[in-house]
Design a protein around this nucleic acid. Structure first.
Lengths: 211, 211
DNA sequence: TTGAAACATGAACCATCTGTCATGTTTATC
DNA sequence: GATAAACATGACAGATGGTTCATGTTTCAA
C-alpha cells in the first residue's frame, strides 16, 4: 500500500474507525498509547514525533501500535476528538445553572484557561490539526463556535446582549480567549493574571452590553 | 554533519545569515526560490513540503537551493520575516495620518484582512512557525503586539479609550482579527462581509470606549 | 583571450520513518 | 490442561527527504 505520511494524496483519510480492544488488558495498552501520544505530540509536534517515540514512551513494541491504530494520523485524530469533547464538557459544566450572562462569560473564560493550563500539550496539538487533517480542524472550531452562538443568541433574546451578528461574536470571543491563553498560559505557564482577566471581561461585557 | 530535518536537537538554530547573491543573476535565482517556497509552503505546509518541490517549482536544480540558503528552515524563516515586515508596513501605512481611533481600528482591521486575502499562503505559513522555530513564532506575535500597544496607549492618553491593560487589549484585538480572518478569508476565500465587519467594529469600539 | 569567481547541476549519501509480517506469548473459556 | 482468540514483538521492507559534493557552465574584469 505504501501509504507514507508524506504521501501526495489524501492527507485526511476518511473516518477510519480505530480498533476496539476486546479485553481489559488490551484496553490498558490502548490507553497507554494514547497517553504517550498526547505527551509526545505536545512536546515535539505531530510531524517531528514518530510512532517509535510513542511506543517507546508507552513501553510497548512498535508493532503493537498498529494493533490499536491504523496509523499515526488516526491516533492524532482520536486525541483531537477527545480533547475537543472534554474541553466543551468542562466549559458547559462550568457555566451550567448560571443566571447572568456576565457570570457565564466569566466562568466560561476561566474554565477555558484552566483547561489549557492542565492540558498544555493538547493546546499545542490543536494548533497542528490544520496541517494534519483540514476537515477535523474546521470541525473543531465550528463545533466550538456553534455552542457559543447558541449562548450568545439566548443572551440577545434575553436582552443581556444587544443585537449583533451572533456568529461573528462567537468567533471574536474565541479569538480573544485563544490569544490571551497563548500569551499567558502557553508562553509563560502561568494563570492569566487578574489584571488581564479583568480587562478581557470589561472589554467583552462593555462591547456586547444591551441598550 | 547529518543534520536531518527530524534531528533531535536544535529545532531552531541561531541566526544563520543566508548567503548574499553577488550578481543580479544570482539575485534573480534567489528570488525565484523564495517565490516558489512561498507557494509550496502555503500549499503543503512546512513539513510536507520538500526542498525538491521548491526547486522544481523554481525551475532550478536541487543543489542550487543550497547556494542561497543553508537549509530548509532558513528559507522558511526568511519568508516569515518578510511577511511580518510587509504586514506591519501595510497596516501602518493604512492608518497613518488618521485622526480618530475609530478610523484607525477600522482601517487597521481592513488592511489586515486585505493583506491575508492577498497572501493566503502566508497566513497559513504563520500558523506553522510555532513548530519550526519557536523563538521566531513568539517574536512575530510580540512584535505585532508591541506596535498595537503603542497605539492603544496613545488612544487612552487621548481619552478615546478608557484605561485598561494595553497589552491585554492588544492581544485581544489580534485574536479577534485572526479568528474573523480565519473564518472568512482563509476558509471561504471571501472578504469579511459587512455584517461581520460591523459587528467587530461595534464590539471593539463599545468595548473600549471612554466615557 | 584568459582565468578566477560566481553560479548551477543532479547523482548519491545517509538518516529516518511508516507500516507489515511471521512468529511468539498471554488470557479466557470450556 | 487444551485450544483458540487476543495481544505483543521487533526485524525488515519500502520509501522519502535533507544535504553534500565533484563537476560543469556562465559571467566579467583585466
Amino acid at each position: 500500500m505504501s501509504t507514507n505520511e508524506s504521501n501526495k494524496e489524501a492527507p485526511a483519510k476518511g473516518q477510519t474507525k480505530d480498533f476496539q480492544a476486546k479485553t481489559s488488558r488490551g484496553e490498558a495498552t490502548r490507553q497507554k498509547l494514547l497517553d504517550a501520544a498526547e505527551e509526545i505530540f505536545g512536546e515535539k509536534g505531530y510531524f517531528r514525533a514518530s510512532v517509535v517515540d510513542i511506543t517507546l514512551k508507552a513501553g510497548v513494541a512498535q508493532g503493537t501500535f498498529y494493533v490499536y491504530f491504523p496509523g499515526k494520523q488516526d491516533i492524532f485524530a482520536e486525541l483531537v476528538r477527545e480533547l475537543s469533547h472534554n474541553l466543551r464538557r468542562e466549559i458547559s459544566q462550568a457555566v451550567s445553572g448560571l443566571n447572568s450572562r456576565r457570570e457565564v462569560e466569566e466562568r466560561g473564560f476561566a474554565a477555558f484557561f484552566a483547561f489549557i493550563k492542565k492540558h498544555r500539550n493538547l493546546y499545542r496539538i490543536m494548533q497542528q490539526v490544520e496541517f494534519v487533517d483540514e476537515d477535523l480542524y474546521k470541525w473543531y472550531y465550528r463545533r466550538m463556535a456553534q455552542g457559543y452562538v447558541q449562548g450568545v443568541e439566548a443572551a440577545m433574546e434575553a436582552g443581556e446582549f444587544r443585537r449583533l451578528d451572533p456568529e461573528t461574536v462567537a468567533y471574536a470571543l474565541m479569538g480573544i480567549a485563544e490569544f490571551i491563553g497563548m500569551r499567558w498560559v502557553l508562553w509563560e505557564g502561568k494563570d492569566v493574571p487578574a489584571k488581564a482577566f479583568n480587562t478581557v471581561m470589561s472589554m467583552v461585557m462593555e462591547g456586547l452590553h444591551a441598550d
